[in-house]
Amino acid sequence: MVVLLLRCFATLLHAMLMLALAPLLMGVVTKIRARLLGRRGPVLLQPYRDLWKLIHKIPLIPDTATELYKIWPFVSFAAIGAVALLVPGFALNLASARFSDFITIIGLFAVSRAAIMLAGLETGFGFGAAGAAREALFGLFSEAALLVVVLVFGLISGDPTVDGIATYFSFGQLGISVSLGFALVATLAVALTETGRIPADNPAGHLELAMVHEAMLLEYSGRYLALFQYTACLRLMIWFSLIATVFFPFGMAQAGNILSWPMGLISWLAKLGALAAALALFEVSTAKMRVFRVPEFLGVALLLGLLAVIFLFVAGRLSA
């Protein structure tokens, strides 16, 4: 009973931290990136200020938009918010662990993507539709690559939930596996595309022709734009947590054991910081790709996923 209460409490804490810290994470990435480029960069809390500024502006609704224009930000946010509750952060074995099936999570990402694409098509002008078309193109390969990576996890751990996979990886005698290395690279490529970072997309881009994610939100303003931007922060947070949980599950707390929480929180924040630094470093050292190079980039990720499956078989045969 106490354990159950603790698990619920941990889930609540996890949800609040995820929702509260998401813009801060975006601020950290921007700051580190600016520092690496030799600039001072905005303060860490700048994303909060931007959101606050946006929700105090009166939204301008395009006259060609339909009634559903105001619904898409909420759909997109609700789907991503649900994922934020399902993906473990500082602790394993949260109350939501049973539902954290990888395929459900991919489905919820797809819901959010569909809502953003429809938001881009809402007003019937060129930039939004161009962004949506590119998003659809990237989605093809990222979803396929991600699913093959999930197959790798499923074959290794025999458990489809993120929580079960992380538990298996943190306790199982795994050693260093070639397959997991390939899977990590594939996941990183998918994560970069899904969160709209360089080299697939530039979140700070201001040239309409080159934008993907931002192009779809071009006609949004005020609180609706704030919700979309917040959702983008949350998505980055989720992907970092997902990668940290699955590939680096050391130091994670057990939700039922309150004494392990501080250690779990510290290691989670440290992992997020390290990933933010890695992302910033990667972004300043690469250039944005042409749109039609991105499918090749993701095709490599898909191929690495397939290679991971094959290596898994070979490893299984060698050890048997």
């Binding site: 929700i55 105090h56 502006k57 009166i58 939204p59 301008l60 609704i61 395009p62 006259d63 060609t64 938009a65 909420f74 759909v75 946010f77 609700a78 918010g81 649900a82 007003t123 002008f125 060129g126 930039f127 309409e208 071009l218 006609e219 005020g222 609180r223 704030a226 919700l227």
Partner: peptide, 25 residues
């Protein structure tokens, strides 16, 4: 989640909205 977002935006944000021609770049 959607309801919480809706209520929070209503509570803390600016009220009302304006219909304008689409910006379209």
């Amino acid at each position: 989640l959607a309801a919480v977002a809706f209520v929070a935006l209503r509570r803390f944000g600016a009220r009302g909205e304006r219909e304008v021609p689409a910006w379209n770049g």
